[in-house]
Design a protein around this nucleic acid. Sequence first.
DNA 1: AAATTTGCTACTAAATTAGTAGCAAAAGTA
DNA 2: TACTTTTGCTACTAATTTAGTAGCAAATTT
Lengths: 126, 126
Amino acid sequence: MANSQNSNTMKEKTALPTVGSPVRGSESGQPIMVLFDLLGRRWAMGILWGLSGSNRTFRDLQTHCGSASPSVLNTRLKELRAAHLIEKAADGYSLTEDGRALFKHLEPLGDWAKDWAPTLSNKSDL
Amino acid sequence: MANSQNSNTMKEKTALPTVGSPVRGSESGQPIMVLFDLLGRRWAMGILWGLSGSNRTFRDLQTHCGSASPSVLNTRLKELRAAHLIEKAADGYSLTEDGRALFKHLEPLGDWAKDWAPTLSNKSDL
DNA sequence: AAATTTGCTACTAAATTAGTAGCAAAAGTA
DNA sequence: TACTTTTGCTACTAATTTAGTAGCAAATTT
């Protein structure tokens, strides 16, 4: 299959967030904001979530992520790889050590969200 | 000042994420994805972060959030209020109980990010 | 009662994402 | 070996979201 991505194929418009530089959503360039910029991009967290269970191929991720268009999915995969949160394994994409560590912190949010989410429909007053 | 926002002034195009319905970034409508959709929107996490220290007025948030344009900031504030994560107090916007609980889970990410972020510049190979 | 500050709304431009089509390399099959 | 299917993308246009600027009315301060 076409693994045509060599080191400098990424002709992105969107800069990868880096420490010390202003990122989308913050001028500070503080680590937490860099992280938030990255994770805030569409499908980013969904990908991490999807890979937490098992490795997945591109096509696999595509269907798992509902309807993610290949262009966005691929862009996000590149970014997450550049951020060393995911990597390519023999059987598809997988979380790196860093990615797994991050997921550990993200996971509790899932449980919290289960309690929180229902209140949206109930208390909703806007 | 103009508190012209009565219950149904929100003529948004973007739907507020709710449980059970597909959200941006996921078709599942699972709580965690609803949360991610909400938090993933530009400035959302930055606002929570900003309010975690102290209450802030609209204008205050604007400067704190770097350069957030009033339109986006206001949209986000409405969404976060609808999600019961923030609310209006006498001295500006503040986190609700839910918001504070969520922040408790988000906070550790800040520490983790401090260790992770530097590796971006070092290991970067894309 | 001015002057200033606050909390927005409105509008246009720029950036990001969605969505569809398609193709070359790899893998599987006969 | 030749053929078929699957995988991993790239390219392109349309739709949606965000940025950015201007401005105004209510509240607050002087």
